[in-house]
């Protein structure tokens, strides 16, 4: 081994700066996309919004004109965009074009819904996937391992909306155990969370299994055993921690999958969250809600990744990108 270049000191600020820069980049890309969307909106957005507000039957040209003037949709696009970006800095996200309520208020509610769902789903995924992975790794290529591999493949090939439909059919319609849609009572979160959690558990299981197998084969685990440690101590002290070092970064990758799943599952189960709001906003061309919910969802990914980075720093003392000098 040679010298290790001095990347020493506290590594936390570097990580935070990098993620903050990513957050700004994400915000810019999302808002730019939204801007293009606004410019290219098909048909007459005002007409559509008026329809959303009053129903298709009651809309005429006059109602649409009134909406247009009221919302400033007749001004140049760049003005609207600049205004929105400025407002963003003041955390003023505007009002919904459909319900006329401040977006911030609605967003808060949706964010809570999405976070509840995500946390429960991640916990389920960790429980199911992590458990299966550890069990499969006990005997690589054994019967259990093959079964788990089959589970992983099946879950991977099943898109969330199909999985959700299957669960609704089975648990709600056939067995009548759980409510299918809506947001009433604690039981209503079970189906959406289960759908998301099962969907995520596949990758969890695979990464856990591979990581545990690799760590168990490593020189340091073998050496720990020959030091005279019992199998249980080796597992608790060496295998699990090092598996975490491999596994946790994958959670960051999962964040994107999680948010995609949130969009689908919330729409499917009419769960009041950001994804549900986003799909509705796309359908009704409600630009402020669309921009805001897309932005918050994307920033959620960055936030999750930041959390992951900080956890990895805590778990793994090695500097990243170290350079050995011979």
């Amino acid at each position: 081994m040679g010298l290790v270049s001095a990347v020493s000191g506290n590594r936390l600020p570097g990580v935070l700066v990098r993620r903050a820069a990513q957050g700004v980049g994400v915000a810019l890309v999302v808002s730019a996309l939204c801007f293009v969307v606004v410019r290219a909106l098909p048909g007459d957005a005002a007409y559509r919004i008026a329809a959303g507000r009053y129903g298709y039957d009651l809309v005429d040209a006059a109602a649409a004109d009134a909406v247009r003037a009221e919302l400033g949709l007749d001004r140049p696009a760049w003005q609207q965009y600049a205004e929105w970006v400025l407002a963003l800095f003041r955390l003023d996200l505007g009002e919904s074009l459909v319900t006329s309520r401040p977006v911030v208020d609605e967003l808060g509610l949706y964010l809570v819904g999405t976070l509840q769902l995500s946390v429960l789903a991640l916990a389920l995924a960790a429980l199911i996937g992590g458990g299966l992975g550890v069990v499969a790794a006990r005997r690589p290529d054994g019967a259990v391992d093959r079964l788990v591999t089959g589970w992983i493949a099946a879950v991977r090939a099943l898109p969330p909306f199909l999985l959700g439909l299957l669960l609704v059919l089975l648990l709600s319609i056939q067995l009548g155990w759980l409510p299918a849609v809506g947001h009433e009572g604690a039981a209503s979160i079970v189906l959406p969370a289960l759908t998301l959690g099962i969907g995520l558990s596949g990758l969890f299981a695979r990464v856990t299994r591979d990581a545990v197998v690799e760590v168990r084969r490593s020189d340091y685990v073998r050496f720990a055993a020959t030091k005279g440690l019992s199998g249980r101590v080796v597992l608790l002290r060496h295998v699990l921690r090092n598996t975490g070092v491999v596994l946790v970064p994958y959670l960051g990758v999962q964040a994107v999958t999680l948010v995609e799943g949130v969009v689908v599952v919330e729409s499917l189960f009419a769960w009041p969250g950001l994804g549900h709001a986003l799909v509705h906003a796309v359908f009704w061309r409600d630009v402020p809600v669309l921009q805001a919910s897309a932005l918050v969802l994307a920033l959620l990914v960055v936030a999750l990744n930041t959390l992951v980075d900080v956890t990895v720093l805590w778990l793994d003392p090695r500097p990243r990108g170290r350079r050995a000098v011979a």
Binding site: D219, Y220, V221, R222, F223, K227, G228, R241, V245, R318
Partner: peptide
């Protein structure tokens, strides 16, 4: 020989750098 490991029999592994747990 598991019961003898560390108490009566010890092995110094080939690659010492990779025989140490990097997180401990």
């Amino acid at each position: 020989r598991r019961a003898l490991w560390g108490r009566e029999l010890a092995l110094l592994p080939q690659e010492p750098a990779s025989a140490l747990d990097p997180t401990m």
